[in-house]
């Protein structure tokens, strides 16, 4: 616990993604699912990765843990994980190697949108959590069982002893998500990646799970990387926000800046197109023309230019925008914010 607290004070990122590129082969060509993504995750803070379908946020999360599907490969970039033993580049490790397996769960844990798929339907929830405990600590069965119950209590499940004996499909969505969190946290990870953890849940259950994530993070000082398409969720829980569009980061910065001073036309349009409980009813929503293109036919230059109202012809459709810093720790990838380009 002590060195966790020390880690929070330490201003070094616990996880740093640098220029990550992940491609996969489709029938019709190579999809550049993640194409040069960089951001940092600070200990004890929450990074919200937001984007619409096809923006590559899930692929990116899976590539960090090297659990990408067959046919996809990391073609460049690095993911630096700060461990007690020093900084390690996860992209240099073999996906199935022993060091990589040790990092999964112990250093970085992952929870998915649909917890059903991460539990085996033929084993009880308890036996799977016990298995996870034993894998990490090598403790005896009885000890592991006590630890599993402690973890389930920790994530706020009522009657943990009863839950242990259930199969995943017997639990409600909210309980399943809690059980999965319990399993993910047994290794005491320093980073938790949550991929749409509340999308399949109802509003009241979503609020419970978000609250839980928040309090778990407070207790353990771990970093949380929350991947979602829901700006509301991000606004409620994230400290920093990374907005992605078609495999690239378009804007990143502190949550307050992203929501109250968005710079990228995409972020602006998304925020103003949301029907919200605090917006004016029946007002015409600002819309973005068209739909998100298939990642296979990403437009050249800035991928957003065909839908962008302020696109500069001859520039946005040709050159890929570089990152410009608009405020300390708030940056945007857009030609509008480039001071006089050398060309």
């Amino acid at each position: 616990m002590l060195d966790r607290a020390a880690a929070v004070l330490d201003a070094q990122p616990v996880l740093e993604v640098r220029d990550l590129r992940v491609h996969f082969d489709d029938y019709d060509g190579i999809v550049r699912a993640v194409d040069g993504v960089s951001f940092q995750v600070m200990p004890g803070r929450t990074v919200g990765i937001v984007g619409e379908s096809g923006c590559g946020k899930s692929v990116m999360a899976r590539s960090i843990l090297r659990i990408v599907d067959r046919g996809s490969r990391v073609v460049g970039g690095s993911v630096l994980l700060r461990r007690r033993s020093g900084v390690e580049d996860l992209m240099q490790l073999e996906p199935d190697s022993r060091p990589m397996r040790e990092i999964r769960g112990r250093e970085i844990a992952l929870v998915f949108q649909e917890p059903m798929t991460s539990f085996s339907p033929v084993h009880t929830v308890g036996s799977q959590i016990i298995e996870a405990v034993r894998l990490h600590s090598g403790s005896s069965r009885a000890e592991a069982r006590r630890e599993a119950i402690r973890q389930l209590e920790h994530v706020g499940t009522p009657h943990p002893g009863y839950i242990m004996e259930q199969y995943a499909w017997q639990l409600s969505g909210g309980l399943r998500q809690r059980a999965m969190l319990a399993m993910a946290l047994v290794g005491g990870p320093s980073v938790l990646i949550a991929d749409e953890p509340t999308t399949a849940l109802d509003v009241t259950t979503q609020a419970q799970v978000l609250e839980l994530l928040h309090s778990l993070q407070h207790q353990s000082g771990m970093a949380l990387m929350l991947i979602t398409h829901d700006f509301g969720v991000v606004a409620q829980i994230a400290d920093d926000v990374v907005v992605m569009y078609l495999g690239r980061v378009v804007e990143q910065g502190p949550a307050d800046a992203i929501f109250h001073d968005p710079r990228h036309p995409y972020t602006r349009a998304l925020l103003s197109s949301m029907p919200s409980v605090i917006a004016k009813p029946r007002a015409r929503l600002a819309t973005l023309p068209g739909a998100v293109p298939h990642p296979l036919n990403r437009p050249p230059g800035c991928a957003f230019h065909p839908r962008c109202a302020s696109a500069i012809p001859g520039r946005c459709d040709r050159d890929t925008p570089r990152q410009s810093v608009v405020q300390p720790s708030h940056s945007v990838n857009c030609h509008l914010y480039h001071e006089a380009d050398p060309t």
Partner: peptide, 9 residues
């Protein structure tokens, strides 16, 4: 329970 899309709220 509705997450309001405003970090100030």
């Amino acid at each position: 329970a509705v997450p309001i899309p405003d970090p100030r709220r």
